[in-house]
């Protein structure tokens, strides 16, 4: 996951919060917007797979990083031009079938033009009255004369999700279908079996003797697909980004169901900090409120305090290195915050 399992984690763990709690942290909102645009761009066209803009962002980071380099981090990218895009054609004629769940299969394929033209000749060589189909064979009961159905392909499809039945076996063919019913296969897939969606009908006589239904229920069986699905859906929606899908990520977002009450989504926060700074002889001893302060080599110092409402007496003492002289300065600071009710102006006023 978890992090982990999720970011989820570092950078984006906050996106969930942003949505809900964005009112408190403006910068966050901006970054998320920027990022989500980037995501959209990337997800919108996964099929065309635009050249990935990999090195860009990190390069910038490297330039800006001011910390000294660890020797091991220096790494020169060899000059050779890297390949920038994955191919869309590996030159094969193939179709492959995968199981997604008890009800859905996924198939992808690749067919070369010359192969298709050759096969088209078997149907007369003309596209007139011919369409591309995926023929789905259900071989659960029988391999010979197995029942099948056709999916007519549109456009330039390279893959398809196929509706299926639990605990059934299938293979598919991609091929050309003539309207007179003739079919030529361009490629045939592997065979797969979908998982069952419930308890097995098979019972082992050596392992009988208790109430299967009750055992199933006690094990949480009737919640399968219900609770586990709901829970995980919640997770995925809220968690956005956990690295692991299993459990972790979600929790904290579930844990903080922050709701934005303001209907208008406008917000305003303000806080105060106090900066106390000064200077003395570099070898003097300085205390503020009884705590020693570390001086910079030039004898200056800076302290920074969160400043809640209240009155604060900040007694500062500087003692000379020879211990003979002490100077005292005592700023007294008071913060008092008023929060008048929000003002709503009428909209038509400019």
């Amino acid at each position: 996951m978890p992090w982990f399992r999720g970011k989820k984690k570092a950078g984006n763990g906050n996106s969930a919060k942003n949505k809900k709690e964005g009112k408190e942290v403006p910068e966050k909102k901006e970054t998320v917007n920027k990022r989500s645009l980037a995501f959209k761009a990337a997800t919108r066209q996964p099929k065309s797979m635009p050249p990935s803009p990999p090195a860009k962002k990190p390069e910038k980071k490297a330039e800006e990083a001011s910390a000294p380099r660890v020797a091991t981090t220096q790494m020169e990218m060899p000059k050779r031009e890297p390949l920038s895009e994955l191919p869309w054609n590996y030159g094969d004629n193939q179709i492959y079938l995968m199981v997604r769940d008890p009800y859905w299969l996924f198939s992808y394929w690749e067919i070369q033009k010359d192969h298709q033209e050759k096969k088209l000749k078997e149907l007369g060589g003309s596209w007139d009255g011919v369409c591309s189909v995926v023929r789905v064979y259900d071989v659960t009961e029988q391999r010979r004369n197995a029942p099948f159905f056709d999916i007519v392909l549109q456009g330039n499809a390279h893959n398809w999700y196929v509706n299926a039945q639990p605990n059934h076996s299938y293979f598919v063919e991609i091929g050309l279908l003539h309207r007179d019913g003739r079919f030529v296969a361009l490629a045939r897939s592997n065979e797969i079996t979908t998982p069952r969606a419930g308890m097995s009908e098979v019972i082992d006589e050596q392992w009988m003797g208790i109430d299967f239904d009750k055992m199933y229920a006690l094990s949480g069986g009737f919640e399968v697909g219900k609770s586990s699905m709901e829970l995980k859906q919640l997770m995925e929606e809220r968690l956005r980004g956990a690295i692991s899908s299993g459990s972790g990520g979600v929790i904290s977002s579930l844990a903080s169901p922050v709701k934005i009450h303001k209907k208008r989504g406008f917000w305003f926060i303000l806080d105060c900090e106090l900066i106390v700074y000064g200077a003395t002889e570099p070898d003097a001893k300085v205390t503020v409120q009884g705590k020693e302060v570390k001086l910079r080599p030039d004898g200056t110092f800076t302290l920074r305090f969160a400043l809640p409402d209240g009155k604060y007496v900040i007694d500062a003492h500087a003692e000379s290195a020879d211990g003979i002289e002490e100077r005292v300065i005592i700023p007294i600071v008071q913060r008092h915050t008023e929060r008048p009710a929000p003002i709503f102006k009428s909209k038509d006023k400019k």
Partner: peptide
């Protein structure tokens, strides 16, 4: 959970 519950033959002890 369902990897076991939907195993075949039926698992006696869930």
């Amino acid at each position: 959970t369902h990897g076991i519950l939907h195993a075949s033959p039926r698992p006696k002890f869930g």
